[in-house]
């Protein structure tokens, strides 16, 4: 589904990613762990199409096609979703309106009819119920005045409603208490399926107790230095990263 080949990327002339290669097949859950500054969030932003980075080498294939030249919204329309580490506030725009616009943009790109407000609200309310979230979330201004936990939960709600096939979670667990963590994890697990893949970026093994990954990768200084199964996460938890650094 997603194939990252020898990716090199700079920000302001500093090389952040130094030859990253990763392949995620349909239905797989991959986790990337690594110390601060190793390039985890950079990778997430580049996959979503943020233009602050200069890609000097390598390629990213999605369903076999390079997405390097695609605008962020085209990637989103193809089914790539990024749960932001720091979700953005848009004052005066309700969550519900924002999500309906987003969903209808995606539908439009596929030639589907836009959903009417009533139709949309019905879908949104179902998802909210499944996720055990509060309905009032829909009528509030997008992320404005949300607590850290609410913002992260809202990202998961958006993911459920937009129904992407490739979800990237950028440190969605950081700053969450254990209850919120469970809600987020349940949201991800409910969305798992044979044709859906996940890339879970995290600092902590804790999240992986709830979202059990098929593969765990360690990213250090812009390169994947070790890959394994979920036991690797436990090993990192007890030993830290230093044993993997050169």
């Amino acid at each position: 589904m997603l194939e990252i080949i020898d990716l090199h990327a700079n920000i302001e002339d500093k090389e952040i990613l130094k030859g990253l290669t990763l392949k995620i097949n349909k239905g797989e859950v991959h986790s990337i762990m690594g110390p601060n500054g190793s390039g985890k969030s950079t990778l997430a932003s580049i996959l979503a199409g943020k233009e602050d980075y200069e890609i000097t080498k390598g390629d990213i294939l999605f369903n076999g096609e390079s997405i390097m030249e695609m605008a962020p919204e085209e990637r989103a329309q193809e089914g790539i979703f990024l749960a932001f580490q720091y979700p953005i506030e848009i004052p005066g725009v309700t969550n519900s309106y924002f999500l309906r616009e987003a969903l209808n943009s995606i539908r439009k790109s596929k030639g589907d009819k836009p959903l009417k407000p009533v139709e949309f609200v019905k879908i949104a309310k179902e998802k909210i119920k499944d996720l055990k979230m509060d309905e009032s979330l829909l009528n509030r201004s997008l992320n404005e005045g949300f607590s850290g936990g609410e913002k992260k939960r809202n990202e998961i709600l958006q993911m459920s409603i937009l129904n992407p096939c490739m979800s990237i979670l950028d440190e969605t667990d950081s700053g969450l208490d254990i209850d919120a963590l469970q809600i987020v994890a349940n949201g991800v697990n409910a969305n798992r399926g044979d044709d859906k893949s996940f890339l879970v970026i995290t600092h902590y093994q804790r999240l992986l107790n709830y979202i059990v990954p098929d593969f765990v990768h360690v990213l250090i200084e812009g390169r994947i230095v070790k890959s394994g199964d979920k036991s690797l996460a436990l090993e990192l938890e007890s030993k830290g990263y230093s044993w993997l650094e050169n």
């Binding site: 199409g49 605008a71 990637r75 989103a76 932001f84 004052p91 005066g92 969903l103 943009s105």
Partner: peptide, 21 residues
């Protein structure tokens, strides 16, 4: 960028933000 990542083009994103304002 946030709006674009959710599938909207830049024009729609701008309209949405200004409307909210």
């Amino acid at each position: 960028f946030y709006c674009q990542q959710r599938g909207m083009n830049e024009e729609d994103a701008l309209s949405l933000i200004v409307n909210g304002f």
